[in-house]
Design a binder for these strands. Structure first.
Lengths: 126, 126, 126, 126
DNA sequence: GTGGTCTAGACCACC
DNA sequence: GTGGTCTAGACCACG
């Protein structure tokens, strides 16, 4: 998997956000080991230092912990992970509302469209 | 503006979607002239043939019309544009709900979070 | 001024501490402009990136603010600077007490030696 | 252990002070044998002549005695060692008070901060 | 092996 | 000019 990155944002933050997604979706659970800096560098096709910086920034936020000579691990602080999940959700909502607004939808229309969309889904499931 | 494209999807469809966004947001109104294939090719930094294909596909869908020797123009069929707008909105909603589901949010939670998010916005505006 | 750095600690933290000292001693006041990254790099004889990291870390702590295209400035948040001053003082005290302890002095002896040392100073001044 | 030395002071005096510290801390007791000049030279990574000069200066002060063919030994003159210990302590105190003064602390504040710092330590130990 | 630091040199965005 | 990012490649400390 070689990723394509946006020009508008630093690569290291984009990589960080990819990991945040993986963690909040449960692909990486509390205490799980992240791939090594070198592995991730090869995987996404960027320099080791850039990955290093992503990991550093994640550690600064407390989302991961690094153990010298062993690797980098998702924190076991579940409350912090829950706060992260809420933050990502808020971001999703913000971007979504902004996109819808640009398409000319007002809050009321948005709510009703989501409602019908979710009901359609439920009908499919039942 | 040089764009970065996903590997998972053909570039020409991605370019098409960019134009759809611009049209539905009103940056390009009914009857407006699109930039020439040549201009767009330079702008996004891809081959002219790829842009050509995007324009062809948009014409096939009736969203734009090409007039020999004059250029490519957004359709004046307002109903069709309205249907396009709704389609984009449905896509936005679908992707949004999927992302939220992957973050572990159920429909009820999503609705309440959107609600409070929109109220916060209103409070800011008032 | 080319500095000599300890091997036991990263250079970028040592540079940060030098600036903290300068700030807390008043050589650099609130709102003052720090030398540019490039100037400091030449001054202390290390790579630009290393200085960059020092400045970054200082900004992360809120001690300085960087303005793109303008430079790096000491924060005007005086309370934060006061907390920094207290932190540096606590570090000084800790290291001092540890050194004295290793020289075999107990707290009581330390206090009395400081007392007489300070009185000697006063006598000199008066 | 390779040391990093200050440019502002001769290396041989800095090496001497390292030995003074070791002696006053009890790492080297009265009558103990110092490592050979050759060993120390390798240990700190400087020229043998520089180490030689440190040993000479220490002998001049009476802190060590060299016996031809046997090596260099810490003096057994305990009173002299005690005076050395007090000298080092006075230096520590002087540097400490100067640093604190530069941070803007007056003697009274310094005393009270040390007091509370030492009490905190006692509480930890008890 | 792991992560952490540092260098040299490049290009970018902002003002 | 300023700070910010990225690369390539080196060396280190820890386990």
């Amino acid at each position: 998997m070689t990723h394509s990155f946006q020009h508008s944002q630093p690569i290291y933050t984009q990589i960080m956000e990819i990991f945040f997604q993986r963690i909040c979706r449960g692909e990486l659970g509390p205490g799980d080991k992240l791939p090594t800096v070198r592995e991730t560098a090869v995987e996404v096709g960027v320099n080791r230092n850039t990955i290093q910086r992503s990991y550093m920034e994640m550690e600064r936020r407390g989302v991961v912990e690094t153990r010298r000579g062993q690797g980098t691990f998702v924190t076991t602080d579940i409350e912090l992970l829950e706060r992260l999940r809420q933050e990502l959700a808020r971001n999703q909502i913000f971007l979504f509302l902004e996109n819808m607004r640009q398409l000319g939808y007002n809050p009321f229309e948005i709510m009703s469209m989501i409602n019908s969309s979710m009901q359609a889904k439920e009908d499919t499931n039942s």
